[in-house]
C-alpha cells in the first residue's frame, strides 16, 4: 500500500471513529505537537488539549464526503494545532511573534471557523446537559445518545413500563430544550 492509500484508509477509519485508526494517528503525530506547544510557552496539558481539538477537526472533516486531503495528515494536523495554539496564546496575552514554525503548513482558516461554531454548539449543549440533573441526564443520554430502546430504559431506570419512561423522557427533553435556548438568548 502506498503512503497516500494508507492515509486514506486511516481517514476512513477515523470517520467511523475506529479506535485503531485513532490510535495510529495519535501515535504518529502526538509527540510532534507536544514539542511544538512546549517549545512555545505551553505545558504538556496544553499540548494534549490542542492535539485532541485538532483530532476533532480532522474527524469532522473525515466524515465530510466532499473533503479531500491535499497534504499529509501530519501537515494538516500540524497546521490546525499551530493555528489553535496561536489563538490560545493570544487569549492568554502571551502572544509572541516568535512562534516557531519549521514545519510546512497549509491554509486552514475555513476549518477554524467551522470548528469554532461547532465547539460553541457543543459547549452550549454540554452546559444545558449539566444543568438538568439526574435522572434526566442519564435518561436523555440513554435514549438520544446511546440510542437504547424505551423498553431497556424502562427496565434500567426502574420505570413500570415503556410508556412511563417515555413520558419522563419527554419531560426531561422539554427542560433541556428550555435550558438550551435560554443560553442562546443570553449569548
Amino acid at each position: 500500500m502506498s503512503t497516500t492509500e494508507q492515509e486514506l484508509q486511516l481517514l476512513k477509519g477515523l470517520a467511523i471513529s475506529d479506535k485503531q485508526a485513532i490510535e495510529t494517528i495519535y501515535r504518529e503525530n502526538y509527540s510532534m505537537i507536544q514539542s511544538f506547544v512546549i517549545n512555545n510557552n505551553g505545558s504538556a496539558d496544553d499540548a494534549r488539549d490542542i492535539f485532541q481539538e485538532a483530532m476533532v477537526v480532522l474527524y469532522e472533516k473525515s466524515k465530510d464526503t466532499t473533503f479531500s486531503l491535499n497534504c499529509q495528515i501530519k501537515t494538516y494536523v500540524y497546521s490546525i494545532c499551530r493555528r489553535l495554539w496561536l489563538k490560545r496564546l493570544q487569549q492568554l496575552n502571551k502572544y509572541s511573534t516568535q512562534v516557531e514554525s519549521l514545519e510546512e503548513t497549509v491554509f486552514v482558516e475555513d476549518e477554524m471557523e467551522e470548528h469554532e461554531k461547532r465547539d460553541n454548539d457543543f459547549t452550549l449543549m454540554d452546559q444545558a446537559m449539566s444543568k438538568i440533573g439526574e435522572p434526566c441526564k442519564s435518561l436523555l443520554d440513554a435514549y438520544y445518545l446511546q440510542k437504547k430502546s424505551m423498553q431497556d430504559i424502562a427496565a434500567n431506570f426502574g420505570y413500570t413500563n415503556a410508556d412511563n419512561a417515555k413520558t419522563q423522557k419527554y419531560k426531561c427533553l422539554i427542560r433541556l430544550k428550555k435550558l438550551f435556548f435560554a443560553q442562546y438568548k443570553n449569548a
Partner: peptide
C-alpha cells in the same frame, strides 16, 4: 434544529471519550 444539535453533541461526545481512552492507553 434542537434534535440535530443533540445528535451532533452525542456523536462528538462519544468521539471525545474514545480520544481520552486512546490517550490514557498511550
Amino acid at each position: 434544529y434542537f434534535l440535530e444539535g443533540l445528535h451532533k453533541y452525542g456523536i462528538l461526545k462519544t468521539f471525545k471519550h474514545t480520544l481520552q481512552e486512546v490517550d490514557a492507553k498511550l
